[in-house]
Design a protein around this nucleic acid. Structure first.
Length: 421
RNA sequence: GCGGGCAUAGCUCAGUUGGUUAGAGCGCCUGACUGUGGAUCAGGAGGUCACGGGUUCAAACCCCGUUGCCCGCCCCA
């Protein structure tokens, strides 16, 4: 049997999967709420290709990051180009922003995307090699922290609508090209004497990404004595962060300042944030994002400010309450008895569907009992019984499957009844 | 890339110190009920016991290897 590639999976209709974390209607539910949020907040959809030139990620995300150094699906195309399945979607969006000269057409581009991303990681709870992200990017002239607060407000609206609980907002500022080099240097001086007592990861991070040393759980005791990024921000970064917090307070959005929150991607500046869930296991990050004011220039565009986040759709679906209703159930099930009745039922279904009624017809000739069983199985709300008698009378029996009430009505009345809904 | 656990029916899982024809619940199909679902009862279909090798008179069970899945590390969504 040919199966899905390791650490990838199928998302199935609910009748084929009991696993609530892999049912397609639950994915649709999150997407629908997200699209409604984007409509209200004025975000417009962008769809970029799922593969790009490898160089885009090398330059955008950073060669030294784990993502680029060991997790990308990269291959050489027939003409020699190095191509890569996108491991994230911010760099592609900025690429499109530059390529289509959006800066000339609008002060601020507010974009969202929904789609699969690919990273060759070892699978785990809430982590897959093809995973789905919904993200937004705000790109343009302004770096007003009000943008950040508004985006987070929108996220909270989504979390509330989706009834996702046990969440926590963590915020931090990682500085800018002015203050970060000083901070990195100072941190290196502080950490150096402790290196022999610290774990292997920290010793490695000391070289590759000194900031991440602050995020070590193993050496938490030592790490807690190191200076926080927040004390060393330059004046402008410090003011930016303070204003950001004021805007959050004004919206009554609770947050926790987490000086150890350091994003692994190179492009982040200033504000970094993350929302975690208490119900996810080790991979507890529901979404994360931040500001990336230099990315446009890094990718060869003109200067532009940027802020965005990506949410893990797979993880959102796992965090959803159990009772998300599957909307794709037939309103009306047509049960028929006899050949003529079946022909009539097939035609009637076509007409009903043209009027927008979701209906199902049995393709087999069954006993009424078995048709009823089938209707029950597909969770039909109503069943229309079409037998020889009904055909002659031109009046059909309509049964409400939840109350059991039955009534007789003509074809005309049937259309009247269901079109209204 | 590293570590731990697991692998028996569509699903969840039993399976004794190795011993005949591998079981249960749920689900599925059929019937009791020839025009009325959910309940009950009866029957039925469904298995390369993950794969390959080894030990043994005999392996679902013991040993080795492989693959896959789960969980953790790393990192991230």
């Amino acid at each position: 049997m040919i199966k899905t590639v390791k650490h990838t999976r199928d998302i199935l209709p609910s009748e084929f999967s009991q696993d609530t974390s892999a049912q397609s209607h639950r994915f649709q539910h999150v997407e629908a709420i997200a699209r409604e949020a984007f409509r209200r907040y004025g975000f417009r959809e962008i769809r970029t290709p799922i593969f790009e030139h490898t160089e885009l990620f090398a330059r955008g995300v950073g060669t030294e990051t784990d993502i680029v150094s060991k997790e990308m699906y990269t291959w050489t195309d027939i003409n020699g180009d190095s191509l890569t399945l996108r491991p994230e979607n911010t760099a592609p969006v900025i690429r499109a922003y530059i390529e289509h000269k959006m800066a000339h057409q609008s002060d601020l581009a507010k974009l969202f995307y929904i789609g699969p991303q690919f990273r060759r990681e070892r699978g785990q709870k809430g982590r897959f090699r093809q995973f789905y992200q919904i993200g937004v990017e705000v790109i343009g002239k302004s770096d007003n922290p009000a943008i950040e607060a508004e985006v987070i407000e929108m996220i909270y609206w989504m979390l509330t609508e989706l009834k996702i609980e046990q969440t926590q907002l963590l915020i931090n500022s990682v500085g800018c090209p002015v203050c970060r080099p000083n901070f990195n240097e100072m941190l290196k001086r502080e950490v150096a004497p402790h290196l022999p007592q610290m774990c292997g990861n920290c010793n490695r991070r000391y070289e590759t990404n000194i900031l991440r040393v602050l995020d070590c759980k193993e050496d938490a005791a030592i790490v807690s004595k190191f200076p926080s990024t927040l004390n060393l921000l330059c004046q402008e970064c410090s003011t930016h962060f303070a204003k950001f917090r004021t805007y959050l307070d004004a919206r009554s959005i609770p947050y926790k300042i987490e000086p150890r929150l350091v994003r692994g991607l190179d492009y982040y500046t200033r504000t970094a944030f993350e929302i975690t869930s208490g119900s996810l296991g080790a991979q507890n990050s529901l979404l994360g994002g931040g500001r990336y004011d230099g990315l446009s220039e890094t990718l060869g565009g003109s200067a532009a400010k940027g802020f965005g986040f990506a949410l893990g759709l797979d993880r959102f679906v796992m965090s959803l309450p159990q009772d998300v209703e599957d909307p794709s159930v037939p309103l009306l099930f047509l049960a028929h008895l006899g050949e003529k009745a079946m022909e009539y039922a097939l035609k009637l279904a076509s007409s009903l569907r043209r009027e927008g009624v979701a209906c199902a017809v049995d393709f087999e000739a069954r006993s009424l009992k078995n048709s009823m069983k089938l209707a029950d199985k597909v969770k039909a709300k109503n069943v229309l019984i079409i037998g020889e008698d009904e055909l002659v009378k031109g009046r059909y029996v309509l049964r409400n499957m939840s109350t059991g009430e039955q009534s007789e009505l003509t074809e005309e009345e049937l259309f009247e009844r269901f079109k209204a809904k």
